[in-house]
Write a protein that binds this DNA or RNA. Structure first.
Length: 599
RNA sequence: GCGCUCGUAGCUCAGUGGAUAGAGCAACUGACUACGAAUCAGUAGGUCGCAGGUUCAAAUCCUGCCGAGCGCGCCA
């Protein structure tokens, strides 16, 4: 076991040097081993994971380990005694001081020389700073958005889009092998309903233009309008959004009466490809790109559903009852068994989805991550059951649920009606608010909480809007470097050759520690699949920079500048540069938004 | 009724079983005749929904209850 840990750490030594927590964890493990070898300590086994944390109170140290407390019981030693045993074995150039405090914390204070060396490494790594290898052999496929091509993207889709995109970026930076995919439900009853709805509007347009319609067409218009204008709410068959009218009208404008005799499939194909194109354009504008757009129709074309059903049948995971084919999902933890083939002989959506997930796995993706709206949570158990019944481990499927978004305008909730199609679409919000602010506001909160999104706040270009706070820090830094290039008093552009020893102010140290923790933050957020953690990090980093900037003068524009001031200035420019690098990396590479040079 | 998620400052929310629970906004007090005030420094604001339990240690884990949202189809 100890060997396994060592191997894993050695394998990624390159990363470890820039990852403080992993580096400290390695020191702790080695101290435990050394103490065991010196027979100062007996443990049945070494812990599989060493947790390194940052103390809330900086006076305790830069980092801390609770190892002495967590191992006290198995080592049969009081925590402080155990810590005292480990202390002599915790040595290295990165430590300025290792101390024992409180109930048995081991507190680490990192040496200034080592930190400054890491600072130079950070600047050298530049856009690569934070990027890691992690040795995870799995290949991940993140499937998200997957909106039906029956209407415009709604605002909830926007949230999944950002979360999925940022998660993919985050995991790639952390060393995971990741592909992304959008699943297009381009077949089935809903697509037919879509086609019929557009057909009805096309007929209306034709009628308005003086065309004579046959009885069937008139009936369709009548049925469509009756549902649209119905007083009572209930199940709806057709789609009634404004976009349906637009599609029908547009078709008549381009084709005239040529399609009056066309079949339903023609209208379905026309509508779904137009809507899909719109979705794709919006997502692209939003900075969300998919490696693959996978249409459900491909499954049917390849007989994949039939094959999946056959596979489940032959392995005894199904049975027939009441004229339907059932899947024994309750054997794998679902509440009840689920129908695959209905009495009518047609497949359920679930059957198609099993085939789709099987296809994803057979394409070589060993880990499937799905982002679903929370309203689909009841679906997880059966999908997980299907994955297992197909012979894959439970871990092959991870479903991340995202809660919904409530839209507000000036504190008033914006009402949405699905029935009448009366909704603010994602495209409208994007147009009104802009990509950067929308992305940031949608990804800064945990997917687990229902999000309140205020349109006016999102548009506001002031301190209420956190995205500008972070971007402003970057723009400010760019401004410093513009000024540095024009400085008369001394050559500020010589900062890359400067000695860094002048960086001794507390504001400088705390900023530097935050910068160097970026790879750890990235790694942890990726492992938790929680991109919002980086939003918190970015805001904290920006705050530390602004504070530093106020307290620590970077450029001295006066005639009588001293050599000490010049040395300090050049050293500080390195810290400013490092901040610029990390802000850019997190804004551009993780959030997918701009790192502006001016605002 | 059952299941999932959430409940932390006035509001919106962070918070990896650790030390005195944090940030932004709102409120109040200060700071621009040198690098961007879209900024900074400070004050005030808390029964971490409630009650038990586990633990050296609980906002965090477990159980029950209360409240909010979302699900519970041979729909997709």
């Amino acid at each position: 076991m100890t060997q396994a840990i060592d191997l894993q750490l050695d394998q990624h030594e390159k990363d470890v040097s820039t990852m403080i927590q992993a580096s400290l964890a390695q020191h702790v493990i080695k101290a435990l081993q050394a103490a065991q070898n010196a027979q100062e300590l007996t443990l049945d086994s070494l812990p599989s994971e060493i947790k390194i944390e940052t103390p809330r109170d900086p006076s305790h140290g830069d980092y801390a380990s609770n190892i002495a407390m967590s191992l006290a019981k198995s080592a049969k030693l009081p925590p402080r005694k155990l810590a005292e045993i480990l202390l002599p074995h915790l040595q290295g150039p990165l430590f300025q001081e290792v101390s024992i405090a409180g109930p048995g914390f081991i507190n680490f204070r990192l040496s200034q020389a080592w930190l400054l060396q890491q600072l130079q490494g950070l600047i050298q790594a530049n856009q690569g700073f934070g990027q890691q290898t992690n040795g995870d052999p799995e290949t991940y496929l993140i499937e998200y958005v997957s909106a039906n091509p029956t209407g415009p993207l709604h605002f909830g889709h926007g949230r999944w889009a950002v979360l999925g995109d940022c998660l993919a970026r985050l995991m790639r930076l952390a060393g995971y092998s990741v592909k992304t995919e959008f699943y297009i439900n381009d077949t089935g009853a809903q697509v037919n309903n879509l086609g019929a709805s557009v057909q009805a509007c096309y007929f209306q347009a034709a009628q308005a233009a003086g065309q004579t319609l046959d009885a069937e067409a008139l009936t369709l218009i009548e049925t469509y309008l009756a549902e649209k204008n119905a007083e009572t709410k209930g199940q709806v068959q057709f789609y009634h959004g404004q976009y349906i009218q637009t599609l029908g009208l547009s078709l008549f404008e381009h084709q005239g009466p040529a399609q009056l005799a066309a079949d339903l499939g023609y209208f379905s194909d026309y509508a779904k490809s137009a809507i899909l194109a719109e979705q794709q354009a919006q997502l692209k504008q939003f900075g969300v790109v998919f490696d693959e757009w996978f249409p459900e129709s491909r499954l049917h074309h390849e007989q994949a559903v039939a094959e999946a059903l056959k596979h489940l049948k032959e392995s005894g995971k199904t049975y027939e009852q009441d004229g339907a084919l059932w899947f024994r999902s309750s054997d794998y933890g679902d509440d009840q068994d689920r129908v695959l083939v209905k009495q009518t002989g047609s497949n359920t959506y679930f059957a198609n989805d099993i085939a789709y997930h099987w296809d994803k796995l057979r394409r070589g993706h060993t880990r499937l991550i799905n982002l679903w709206g929370a309203d689909h949570h009841g679906y997880i158990a059966r999908m997980s059951a299907a994955i297992q019944a197909l012979g894959y481990p439970k871990e092959a499927l991870q479903v991340l649920l995202g809660q919904m978004v409530n839209l507000f305008r000036n504190g008033e909730k914006v009402r949405m009606s699905k029935r009448t199609g009366d909704m603010i679409s994602f495209g409208e919000v994007l147009e009104e608010v802009g990509t950067d602010a929308t992305r940031f506001l949608l990804m800064q909160r945990s997917a687990d909480v229902t999000l309140d999104f205020d349109l006016e706040l999102a548009k506001s270009q002031n301190s209420e809007n956190p995205v500008f706070y972070v971007q402003y820090a970057h723009a400010r830094i760019c401004s410093i470097f513009r000024n540095a290039a024009n400085l008369q008093a001394y050559d500020a552009t010589a900062w890359p050759q400067a000695s860094l020893e002048a960086l001794v102010a507390p504001e400088e140290r705390i900023l530097l520690l935050k910068l160097l923790s970026y790879p750890d933050e990235l790694k942890f957020a990726a492992s938790q699949r929680e991109p919002h953690r980086l939003a918190t990090y970015a805001q904290d980093l920006a705050a530390l920079f602004h504070s530093f900037y106020k307290q620590c003068r970077v450029l001295f524009e006066k005639e009588d500048v001293t050599s000490e001031e010049i040395a300090l200035s050049l050293a500080r420019l390195n810290l400013v540069k490092a901040t610029q690098v990390v802000l850019r990396n997190v804004l551009v590479d993780v959030f997918g938004i701009s790192a502006p040079e001016v605002m």
